[in-house]
């Protein structure tokens, strides 16, 4: 590893960090606007033209609020909780290939921080760690609502991780690699996995919603029963970090869904371009796909009511996992047939 590579990777990491934060901040704005539009309202429009400065105002407000730690809380775990959430939300973007190689200053720069040969497993690993932020924060608050939120989060995440993993295995079978880079490259042009694996995509999408704690699976923080769920006791920027991490992981998991099923940065007719033009167009295509996913996730939130907890468990264990396993078996048979193993 030479110095130039170190510099370019650090620059990429910094850029990704800033972009993730910026996107997360404007997701809050977009979410509020979308909610308003669906409910025939106007939404935030006072801070700046069309309320475009609203996230900045919200962020400043978060910083200026009193930072409160309950007297009987476990102080260290209370502080660590939001940190873990934010960390796991941000680190997933390291294995995402954001576009084709770009040529800058005579160097061929890969737009992927780390080309892990097991990138997809890394994503699952980080997702499964992400629940600790919620669990630790919820338990450390020493509040019954927070504890309920934490327990709901953990059982929900464990249940849905299984179906998520099984549905993603079909993609690994098709592309023959665990590396996200290879998975994207195998979907060149319009050869997207969604056309081969619609069922797997459907399951993956639902389980992603559950892993993100987004409606209709937002039981860990549901306001109507648990006040704020795991972040009931949190205030100031600690609460801000929890909310931020939710939006950041929404951004990143939209990227993961786009990579696994919608060809990542591939777009139809990409062979006509090359070099930096292709790189910029591929980034734009990827960004468009991510935006559409974010839009759909928010759209679902403002359409579908929340599940009851037993319905959630029923859906996870008795519907999604069997369907995912059958889908995996069929895919395995077809792959084996095509490879001539049968």
């Amino acid at each position: 590893m030479d110095t130039a590579m170190l510099i370019e990777k650090s620059a990429l990491v910094l850029l990704l960090f800033l972009i993730s934060l910026g996107v997360a901040a404007y997701q809050t704005y977009f979410e509020r606007k979308l909610a308003a539009w669906i409910q025939d309202r106007v939404g935030p429009d006072r801070a700046g033209p069309f309320g475009i400065l609203q996230p900045i105002a919200d962020g400043t407000k978060m910083f200026l609020k009193e930072d409160f730690i309950p007297a009987k809380a476990d102080k260290w775990l209370f502080i660590i909780g939001p940190g873990i959430s934010m960390f796991t939300a941000l680190i997933t973007s390291a294995v995402v290939p954001w576009g084709t190689n770009i040529n800058l200053f005579g160097r061929d720069i890969s737009l992927q921080v780390a080309d892990f040969n097991i990138g997809i497993l890394f994503v699952f690993g980080v997702v499964s760690i992400g629940v600790y932020g919620i669990m630790i924060g919820g338990w450390a608050s020493n509040n019954k609502y927070s504890l309920y939120g934490a327990i709901r989060a953990s059982s929900q995440m464990i249940s849905y991780e299984l179906a998520m993993g099984i549905s993603a295995i079909t993609i690994v079978m098709l592309s023959g690699s665990l590396s996200l880079n290879d998975i994207v490259k195998s979907q060149h042009g319009m050869n997207w996995n969604i056309f081969y694996q619609p069922v797997a995509f459907f399951i993956f999408f639902i389980t992603s919603l559950a892993e993100l704690n987004r409606a209709p699976f937002d039981l860990p923080e549901c306001e109507s029963e648990l006040i704020g769920g795991y972040h009931t006791e949190y205030s100031s920027m600690k609460l801000g970090l929890y909310l931020f991490s939710e939006y950041t992981s929404m951004f990143v998991s939209s990227a993961i869904m786009a990579i696994l099923f919608f060809g990542g940065y591939n777009f139809p007719g990409m062979d006509a371009f090359s070099g930096n033009t292709l790189a910029i167009l591929s980034i734009a295509a990827f960004a468009l796909k991510i935006f559409l996913f974010i839009f759909v996730i928010m759209w679902i939130r403002w359409t579908i009511p929340r599940f009851r907890f037993d319905q959630l468990m029923h859906l996870g264990w008795k519907v999604l996992i069997p369907v995912a396993i059958v889908n995996m078996l069929i895919t395995g048979l077809v792959v084996a047939w095509n490879q001539g193993w049968m």
Binding site: I118, G125, S128, V131, L147, S154
Partner: peptide, 26 residues
């Protein structure tokens, strides 16, 4: 052994210990 590392993380840290914590919290 990256595969083992990640699987160790997913299975033990991500699933089994979450269940441990789950039970202990209750």
């Amino acid at each position: 052994a990256q595969f083992l590392a990640i699987v160790n993380m997913i299975v033990y840290a991500g699933a089994i210990m979450v269940l441990f914590l789950f039970v202990l919290m209750l």
